[in-house]
C-alpha cells in the first residue's frame, strides 16, 4: 500500500474540491471495499478524504412518501429503518442478504453502490484485467468464470456487479444525487452503473471528484408487493450466483405491473424490461413467470463456466414471483 495523506471533510463542498484537486485522491467512508483494494494494490490513492463526518447519515421521508437516504447511512441502519422495512421490503431484504453483520455496520449506501466487482482476477494484480489495467486483457474469459456475466458483457470484461442493494434500488427506480464542482446532479440508478463495453475501467458515470450525497427512492404504488431472492453457494455471507429483486402489483390472478431486476448476471443490476413487458396483464402462473424470464434471458451469452445461470435465473425469478403473488400478506 502506498503511503497516503488523510483528511476529514467538514462539508461536502470542500470534500469535493479536495478530491477534484488531485487525481490521486479518493473519498473514504465505510472503507470495507476501498481498504480491501488498497491492501491488494487494486487501488492506490495518495489522499483519502474521509466523508463520514458529513451530515449525510439520515433517512428522510419525502413529501410523496418516498425516502431520501443519505450517502453515509450504514447498510445495517438502512435495513433496520422502520419506513424501509414497512414500505420497501425489497430494499431491506437485499441489504440483509449482503455481506455480514459486521460489514453492514460499516458499509454505507454510497459505498455499496460504488463497490467494485469481486472478479478474482480484478482483485489479483498479478493477472491481466482490463478493468484494473485497461488494455492488459481479461483473464476471466479464458479462465474461471463461474460467477461472471451472461448479459451485457463485452470482449473486454465479463465482470458482474456484486451489490445486492443496487439490484433492489433498480426495481425501485431510485435516483442518485451527486455533488460535483458545478453543483448537484441527479442520476437515475439505471444510468448510474455502466456496461463494460470498450471501457470496463469505469463502473459508473461518476466523474472524478463527484460525491454521491444521497439516494432518493420514490414510493411503491399501494398494493405492490416486493421482495428479494438471492441464490448463492452457501446459506449466508456469500456473493450471489443469481439474485432477483421484484415489485409486483396484481389484479386478482393477473399481473398488473411487475418490476424486475437481476443481480449476478451483468456488469450492472439488470432491469428485466422484456420480462416485465411479457408479464404485463399475464396470468400469475409459474408458466407465465418462466416464459417472462426466458423472454429476458434469450439475449444471454454464457461463458464456458456459467451457463447454469440462465436456468437458475429463470427458476429463481419464477420462485420469487410465485411467492409475491400467492402468499398471504404478512
Amino acid at each position: 500500500m502506498k503511503p497516503f495523506d488523510y483528511s476529514r471533510a467538514d462539508d461536502a463542498g470542500s470534500a469535493v474540491a479536495a478530491v477534484m484537486a488531485r487525481p490521486d485522491a479518493a473519498f473514504l467512508a465505510g472503507g470495507t471495499n476501498l481498504v480491501d483494494h488498497m491492501k491488494l494494490g487494486v487501488a492506490a490513492p495518495e489522499l483519502l478524504v474521509d466523508v463520514t463526518g458529513l451530515p449525510l447519515d439520515r433517512v428522510e421521508e419525502l413529501p410523496d412518501g418516498g425516502l431520501r437516504i443519505g450517502a453515509t447511512v450504514r447498510n445495517s441502519d438502512l435495513a433496520a429503518h422502520p419506513l424501509v422495512r414497512r414500505r420497501l421490503p425489497v430494499l431491506s431484504q437485499a441489504l440483509l442478504a449482503g455481506a455480514s453483520g459486521q460489514l453492514r455496520n460499516a458499509a454505507t449506501t454510497a459505498g455499496n453502490l460504488l463497490q467494485r466487482t469481486r472478479c478474482g482476477y480484478f482483485q489479483d494484480v498479478t493477472t491481466p484485467c482490463n478493468k484494473r489495467e485497461p488494455g492488459s486483457g481479461c483473464a476471466a474469459i479464458g479462465g474461471w468464470n463461474r460467477y461472471h456475466a451472461v448479459l451485457g458483457a463485452s470482449e473486454h470484461c465479463v465482470a458482474v456487479h456484486p451489490s445486492d442493494m443496487a439490484v433492489a434500488l433498480r426495481v425501485l427506480d431510485a435516483v442518485v444525487t451527486v455533488l460535483g464542482e458545478d453543483g448537484e446532479r441527479r442520476v437515475p440508478v439505471g444510468e448510474f452503473h455502466r456496461l463494460p463495453g470498450e471501457a470496463p475501467e469505469a463502473d459508473t458515470v461518476l466523474r472524478h471528484g463527484e460525491l454521491v450525497t444521497a439516494v432518493e427512492v420514490p414510493p411503491l404504488p399501494a398494493g405492490t408487493r416486493s421482495g428479494y431472492r438471492k441464490v448463492r453457494d452457501r446459506a449466508s455471507y456469500a456473493f450471489a450466483l443469481v439474485s432477483v429483486a421484484a415489485a409486483v402489483e396484481t389484479d386478482g390472478d393477473r399481473v398488473r405491473e411487475a418490476r424486475i431486476a437481476f443481480g449476478g448476471l451483468a456488469h450492472k443490476p439488470w432491469r428485466a424490461e422484456r420480462a416485465e413487458e411479457a408479464l404485463r396483464g399475464a396470468s400469475a402462473t409459474d408458466e407465465a413467470f418462466r416464459e417472462a424470464a426466458e423472454a429476458e434471458l434469450r439475449a444471454a451469452r454464457p461463458l464456458p463456466g456459467n451457463g447454469f445461470k440462465i436456468p437458475m435465473a429463470r427458476n429463481t425469478l419464477a420462485a420469487l414471483l410465485r411467492e409475491l403473488t400467492t402468499e398471504e400478506r404478512r
Partner: peptide, 13 residues
C-alpha cells in the same frame, strides 16, 4: 459499541 471488522478500517479514521 457496534461490531465491525477491524481489518477493513484505518486506525487514523
Amino acid at each position: 459499541g457496534r461490531r465491525v471488522v477491524s481489518c477493513l478500517t484505518f486506525a487514523v479514521a
